[in-house]
């Protein structure tokens, strides 16, 4: 780890001010991605802006048909929140499958979405549910927020504040974990909600993507059988020592079926 300065502001405005003044400063939320990168000397920020002192970034609330989750909300809180469990049980279930207890007690939804790891869980839920991303200066749709592997629309000094999830009629999630890292090898989130019927895939590709053939099949007939014949094109999918693109393409179909079963 290289040396860095450390700030712990108590308001969003102060945090943004520090980030704007120093282009090499970085926000840190749970630190479960950023700190390992620092330890491996893969990243050299001049300063870390610790978001854990900002009360405005925390909390889960329901406003009408929308669930609003603060960026600093830990995965463990999402997994156990009564509000989320009753409104979007698939999202609570998804959170409960992230990493292990220690990871869920540190990692945050904001950190995970801002990081946009192709193998992370949440991007699929955000994409399928048509979530809105509220930052300190604007609101972005999921399609605009995610911009491929480890890339988002956030400016370097822009903070993700909260994520707004429209409550769906139903939703489900299924994934196969990478046996080593336990991140997603292929996860599929299906939802029937405000944005229509959506099927979003994490883990299999270089970033979260929608499976349009499966969406069409489910729009015609919401059932596991309807998606059994959907063929994902392996072209462009990830291929590594844990599985070929063909294997991942096959998993897209299997996990879509299972997600529909999960959604009921």
């Amino acid at each position: 780890m290289y040396d860095f300065a450390y700030h712990k502001p108590t308001s969003i405005a102060d945090a943004v001010k520090i980030l704007a003044a120093d282009p090499d400063a970085k926000p840190v939320s749970g630190g479960h991605t950023l700190l390992p990168a620092l330890k491996h000397r893969l990243n050299q920020p001049s300063a870390l802006v610790d978001l854990s002192g900002i009360a405005e970034l925390r909390g889960i609330k329901r406003e009408g048909d929308t669930i609003i989750i603060g960026a600093m909300t830990r995965h463990g809180e999402v997994a156990t929140s009564d509000i989320i469990k009753s409104a979007i049980p698939a999202l609570a279930h998804m959170a409960s499958t992230i990493g292990d207890t220690q990871v869920r007690n540190r990692g945050t939804m904001g950190g995970s979405l801002a990081n946009n790891d192709p193998a992370a869980d949440y991007p699929a839920a955000a994409m399928a549910l048509g979530a809105k991303f509220q930052t300190d200066r604007r609101t972005l749709a999921a399609e605009d927020f995610f911009q491929g592997m480890f890339t988002t629309a956030l400016e370097p000094d822009e903070l993700l504040i909260a994520i707004h999830f429209p409550v769906p009629k139903k939703a489900g999630y299924a994934k196969l974990k990478n046996p080593a890292s336990r991140y997603s090898m292929c996860g599929v989130f299906v939802a029937d909600g405000a944005a229509g019927i959506r099927v979003a895939v994490n883990g299999a590709g270089p970033g979260v993507f929608r499976q349009e053939a499966a969406e069409a099949a489910l729009s015609a007939n919401w059932s596991p059988e309807a998606v059994a014949g959907v063929k994902q094109d392996p072209d462009g999918l990830n291929s590594d020592i844990h599985g070929s693109a063909e294997y991942r393409a096959h998993l897209v179909t299997v996990m879509t079926k299972r997600a529909v079963l999960d959604a009921g």
């Binding site: 046996p179 599985g243 070929s244 294997y247 096959h250 179909t253 299997v254």
Partner: peptide, 18 residues
């Protein structure tokens, strides 16, 4: 590993594997 076994199963019985 899972892909290795799926490969065997899939090669023999694509219908079942899906």
């Amino acid at each position: 590993t899972p892909p290795k076994l799926w490969g065997i199963i899939n090669a023999a019985r694509p219908a079942l594997a899906a």
